[in-house]
């Protein structure tokens, strides 16, 4: 039971917090993100939820830690990436973002953004107008996170959606993922050269994934 050669390196990792209101699908969003990373991108991930007694309407959070190495951080206090789908969540959790971390907000709901460096996309509006259903706001958000940070590939996200949702729901959700991903990519392209240079690389390129 004693390990022969314990691996003492602490692998790079990214901690993501998805926050909003109960019923916005944050638990599913976290699960898709973790599944894409762990199953389809060969990384490791731990996904956990934090929730209150309310099934709908209370504060809701889903957290994912992704790393090419072992993940032993089952709960984090500080996050590299913070998604906020409601103003209340943004106000409450902005302080949990590390310095220089990425804030991603649904600008349909979050009107007071605490930093000028946030990725702001009108996710709910995009869901209603382009996918015809507000329930896919969560997957637009997941797409946007990955389009911006590149921590998980678009292919992995699509595969995760296809494997975990009912077949008839897949097309709409895949569309939402792609929509969010493309919107975030465009946002990065439109950034000034200087600002783009400040964005941290979250892609785990060059790191060896452990099986």
């Amino acid at each position: 039971m004693v390990q022969a050669v314990p691996d003492m390196t602490i692998a790079p990792k990214v901690a993501i917090r998805l926050s909003g209101t109960g019923g916005q699908g944050l638990l599913l969003a976290g699960r898709i993100l973790a599944e894409a990373a762990a199953i389809y991108d060969g990384l490791n991930a731990v996904q956990s939820n934090s929730y209150g007694p309310e099934a709908r309407g209370g504060a809701s959070r889903s957290e994912v830690v992704i790393s090419p190495g072992e993940v032993d951080d089952l709960r984090c206090k500080r996050f590299d990436v913070l998604l906020c789908l409601s103003q209340k969540a943004c106000d409450a959790y902005y302080s949990s973002l590390v310095e220089g971390g990425v804030l991603i907000v649904d600008s349909t709901n979050v009107t007071v953004v605490p930093t000028s460096r946030a990725l702001e996309l009108p996710m709910t509006r995009m869901a209603i107008e382009e996918c015809g259903n507000r329930v896919v706001t969560n997957l637009i958000a997941v797409g946007a996170i990955c389009g911006y940070t590149r921590m998980v590939t678009l292919e992995a996200l699509v595969a995760a959606v296809e494997s975990s949702l009912r077949a008839d729901l897949v097309p709409m959700n895949v569309k939402a993922i792609k929509l969010g991903y493309a919107a975030a990519e465009k946002f990065v392209q439109d950034m000034s050269e200087k600002k783009r240079g400040q964005v941290r690389d979250y892609s785990f390129k060059g790191t060896q994934a452990t099986p």
């Binding site: 599944e35 762990a38 199953i39 991930a45 731990v46 996904q47 956990s48 993940v71 089952l74 709960r75």
Partner: peptide, 9 residues
Amino acid sequence: EIVGHMREK
């Protein structure tokens, strides 16, 4: 609660 509800590979 943490072990029960967290997801891992």
